[in-house]
Simulated scan of single mutants.
Amino acid sequence: MKRRMAWLSAFAMAALLVGCKAEQEIARGKPVAEIAAITFDGTLVKLEHFRGKVVLLNFWSGGCGPCIAEMPALDAVYRANRDRGSGFTVLALNMGEPDAAVQRAAARLGVSFPVLLDGLKITTDRYQVVGAPTSFLIDGEGRLIEKIVGPVDIAGLEAKLAGLL
């Protein structure tokens, strides 16, 4: 219970820091909205922490077969590119499932990129994500390169990264 209250407090703080207003759909080349997400230990994560790096913000759910199926391939792309050029990261943002369920799924998947919680669906709503998986490829300046609805085309992602890193 104490951990749950700390988790909710962190999300409330995140909401205050980045606002809760409705966002317009993000257009290619335009800045993306800030995220309101936390790690399993309650640390607030913001996109500005990754400024200068290319980011794949991946919205997923533990009950989504395509989400789970693409994770190992995303992890391979992450490991191959995280230290190239300006850097690359994947942020796997779970879409509102209980933190214990997300931790179990993350442990089963064994991915090396950050798995984040969006228990109140603040970021999910802000990015207008309707279904999982949905991903946003973001450049080092925080602008949208591409919105990907459905599983990520790994070969296409690698080709794009080759031109960005």
Score class of each variant (00 low, 15 high):
53 K>F: 14
77 V>Y: 09
150 G>C: 15
161 L>D: 10
162 A>R: 14
4 R>E: 05
35 I>H: 02
151 P>E: 15
78 Y>L: 03
125 D>G: 08
74 L>K: 11
124 T>I: 11
121 K>G: 11
111 V>H: 03
78 Y>A: 11
54 V>F: 07
142 G>M: 15
68 I>F: 10
38 I>M: 10
116 L>H: 03
107 A>L: 01
159 A>K: 06
29 G>I: 13
150 G>H: 15
121 K>F: 07
116 L>F: 00
45 V>F: 11
98 P>I: 03
134 T>L: 01
142 G>C: 12
113 F>T: 14
52 G>F: 08
48 E>Y: 08
3 R>M: 06
30 K>P: 02
81 N>E: 10
143 R>V: 06
138 I>A: 07
160 K>Q: 13
34 E>A: 06
55 V>I: 12
104 R>M: 06
67 C>D: 12
119 G>P: 03
92 A>Y: 06
59 F>V: 00
36 A>M: 13
2 K>T: 05
134 T>R: 02
112 S>A: 05
64 C>V: 00
86 S>D: 10
71 M>A: 09
85 G>V: 07
54 V>M: 09
118 D>R: 01
160 K>W: 14
56 L>V: 07
25 E>H: 15
85 G>A: 07
84 R>T: 07
49 H>S: 13
154 I>C: 12
109 L>C: 04
146 E>R: 08
16 L>F: 13
41 D>S: 01
156 G>S: 08
19 G>W: 08
50 F>Q: 00
78 Y>K: 04
132 A>C: 12
83 D>S: 15
153 D>S: 09
53 K>V: 15
96 G>C: 05
102 V>S: 04
48 E>L: 09
79 R>M: 07
79 R>N: 14
139 D>C: 09
159 A>N: 05
37 A>M: 09
127 Y>V: 03
83 D>I: 07
157 L>C: 03
99 D>N: 06
26 I>Y: 14
114 P>Y: 15
100 A>F: 02
81 N>Y: 11
114 P>W: 14
155 A>Q: 08
21 K>R: 12
92 A>L: 13
152 V>I: 11
130 V>H: 11
107 A>G: 01
117 L>P: 00
64 C>A: 05
9 S>D: 01
44 L>S: 05
65 G>L: 14
113 F>K: 07
132 A>Y: 07
151 P>V: 14
147 K>M: 10
162 A>M: 11
58 N>H: 13
25 E>Y: 13
12 A>S: 09
34 E>Q: 15
111 V>L: 10
20 C>A: 07
16 L>E: 00
111 V>D: 03
107 A>M: 03
59 F>D: 00
31 P>F: 14
44 L>D: 04
140 G>I: 01
75 D>A: 01
6 A>P: 04
14 A>S: 12
108 R>H: 04
83 D>M: 11
46 K>F: 13
36 A>H: 13
2 K>N: 10
157 L>Q: 07
130 V>E: 14
62 G>Y: 04
56 L>A: 05
95 M>F: 11
126 R>N: 13
108 R>L: 08
132 A>N: 06
86 S>C: 11
25 E>L: 12
